[in-house]
Amino acid sequence: MACEIAPTDQIFGISDEYITYIDDGRDYYNTVVVIGSDPVRIRKFMRIYRPLLTNKAKVVLLSATRPHGLAQMLNIGFDDVIEAEMPPAEALARIRAILGRIALAQQSQALDAAADLHLQHYAAQALLGREARLLSMLVAAKGSPVRTQHLAASSKSTSRPIGLKSLQVLISGLRGKLKPHLQIVSHGPSGYALVDASPARRLIMEAKERTPAH
């Protein structure tokens, strides 16, 4: 089955005693297919090496399995269980789907890391997830007010929307984590705005106001 899914020159063999290729940092392979008939040894293998395979597709190939055995394999960390009778085209499609999900997750992680790095210019302390989303919206508005309902919508959890009081608590906590020259100003019904209150910024704005328009 494995040879039908991928060319032989792209397959690396390993065993319980020889695990040279088990390393998440290696980029010349993207899928681990575990083949065996001993479920106990297979589950032991995954328990040991799962932390090293977070960015790899992890598939177990079995001759046959019952629903309980299938659940055990998935619970231990395999992304999918492929039975030997499955057509190679279907097995390949399922592996590609797993790799697609991994790629999307990695892209999302990279974007989150970039956003966190950007927010470090504004926050003096580590932010909670909701605080980071609030600050991102305020930063994107470039000093203009962001409506309360928009901020509340961006900060809601999957189980229940955030209320006005909860939003006010979040804003209060976020204010305490900003760098000293930044402030979150309430604009009443118009919402909140992030402003630069540093003396240098104030002097620049006053100079612009004094400069006659041409």
Rank of each mutant, 00 (worst) to 15 (best):
A140T: 04
Y192I: 06
H121L: 12
R94G: 06
A113W: 03
I22R: 00
K177N: 00
A91M: 07
A123V: 07
P189F: 03
S186Q: 09
I48Q: 05
K177F: 00
P145Q: 03
R133P: 09
S108Q: 15
S37R: 00
I98M: 11
D80F: 03
Y28V: 04
L117E: 15
N55E: 06
A89C: 03
N75A: 15
V59L: 03
G36S: 01
I42D: 01
A153L: 08
Y192L: 10
V195C: 13
V81P: 01
D80H: 05
Q109A: 15
R43D: 10
H214S: 11
P180K: 04
I102G: 01
M205H: 10
V169M: 12
H214C: 10
E206R: 15
V81H: 00
D27K: 05
L61K: 03
P87V: 04
A140R: 13
P180F: 03
Y29P: 01
Q120T: 13
L92G: 10
D23N: 05
Y192H: 15
Q183G: 09
R160D: 07
Y21A: 11
K179S: 07
P7S: 03
E206F: 06
L92N: 13
A200L: 10
K58L: 13
D196Y: 02
Y21E: 14
A57P: 10
A124M: 14
S136Q: 12
L178I: 11
I35G: 01
M137H: 13
G100V: 09
Q125D: 12
T211Q: 15
R43I: 14
D23Y: 02
S172K: 05
Q107S: 14
H118L: 14
R101K: 15
I76N: 06
H187G: 00
D23S: 02
F45T: 04
G188D: 07
K208M: 13
V195M: 13
Q168P: 04
P145S: 02
K156G: 15
I48D: 03
V34N: 02
S159M: 07
Y122P: 00
L178S: 12
E4L: 12
P67C: 05
I22K: 00
A193P: 04
P88K: 03
M86K: 04
V34A: 09
L104H: 06
A114G: 14
A197I: 12
I22T: 01
R26N: 03
G25W: 00
N55T: 10
G100Q: 12
A105L: 07
A84E: 09
I171D: 02
P87N: 02
L127T: 10
A91Y: 04
V59D: 00
H187I: 01
F78A: 07
I102W: 02
H181A: 14
A2T: 09
E4H: 05
A71K: 12
R202N: 05
A152P: 05
S108Y: 09
L138E: 08
G188V: 08
A126V: 05
Q109G: 08
I48F: 07
L61A: 07
A110N: 07
S166M: 08
P67H: 04
A123T: 08
G173Q: 15
R175L: 09
P67L: 04
L70P: 01
S155Y: 08
N75L: 11
V139I: 14
T211C: 14
V40F: 08
I19L: 08
E17D: 01
L117W: 06
S186E: 13
G77K: 08
A89F: 08
I162K: 06
G173C: 11
